[in-house]
């Protein structure tokens, strides 16, 4: 069986917000180390990988590995019934077709209980190769959100170029072009810092609508990392205290 007690429903809500527009159904793979989810969008352009560590829960017990097939729209509805600071317990028996969610109010005696149907999901888990990336950019997640949102007003794609100068995001639209250069900052310790580690110059083009989607994870984590090598998928990584959410995005490449 699974029993996982989270300090706050808000963490799960934010996580769902960050993936629900990319994927509709996903298996939450539970084992003694924690909960993992890997899912691709319908067009096979983007992949999201989530990990929640067992140690990050107030209480965690999973006797044997079990997949929980979840419709994310349904889970979003059930989570809306929780207050952000409710203590939240997820429970499922072995071979169960129901996920039980219990919300305990922090400052009152309210206890709410919900049961949600689980489903069988055929998921083809992809093997993601360990990659040595040529460039790693670390920046405030809010800045990343802003730049992709701004450029998505202009065009469909963004070219991301990393050089010693900094990281440049450029988009060409029918009516307007735009580019944003973010220079490396001196003070690495500053939470507003932009740091660039680079073996070689990289230049890649991606669909902006996916990046706008990924950037919703800014609510989970103040920093984001972009990992890039020429002609391979971009990795957008948000590490928060209890785990991580990582997105992979296939590039657009010339014929």
């Amino acid at each position: 069986m699974l029993e996982a007690k989270l300090a706050e429903a808000g963490t799960l809500k934010k996580l769902l917000d960050a993936i629900k527009e990319l994927v509709t159904d996903a298996n939450f793979e539970c084992n003694e180390e924690g909960i993992n989810l890997q899912a691709m969008d319908n067009s096979h352009v983007a992949l999201v990988a989530v990990h929640l560590e067992a140690a990050g829960f107030k209480r965690y017990r999973c006797d044997r590995p079990m997949p929980l097939g979840v419709n994310l729209t349904s889970l979003t509805k059930v989570l809306k019934c929780a207050k952000d600071d409710d203590i939240t317990t997820l429970k499922a028996a072995d071979e169960a077709d129901v996920l039980n969610l219990v919300y305990e109010a922090k400052n009152s005696d309210r206890i709410a209980e919900y049961d949600m149907k689980l489903m069988d999901i055929d998921s083809d888990t992809l093997g993601i190769p360990d990659t040595e990336y040529d460039a790693r950019v670390t920046m405030p997640s809010a800045e990343f959100t802003r730049v992709v949102r701004d450029l998505s007003q202009l065009g469909e794609s963004v070219r991301i170029e990393v050089s010693k100068e900094g990281v440049r995001f450029a988009s060409e639209g029918e009516a307007a072009n735009g580019s944003v250069l973010m220079k490396q900052t001196d003070d690495d310790e500053d939470t507003q810092a932009i740091t660039i580690e680079m073996n070689q110059h990289v230049s890649l083009t991606f669909s902006l609508k996916y990046l706008v989607n990924f950037s919703k994870s800014a609510s989970l984590c103040p920093r984001v990392q972009l990992m890039m090598s020429n002609d391979v998928p971009l990795l957008v990584a948000y590490d928060f205290g209890q785990g991580y959410i990582r997105y992979y995005l296939a590039p657009k490449i010339g014929d």
């Binding site: 691709m40 096979h44 352009v45 992809l126 669909s207 391979v232 657009k252 490449i253």
Partner: peptide, 14 residues
């Protein structure tokens, strides 16, 4: 022109 690649051409089925 640029073509959108699929992730399946980069990642193997595990």
């Amino acid at each position: 022109s640029l073509k959108q690649k699929s992730l399946k051409s980069f990642f193997s089925k595990g």
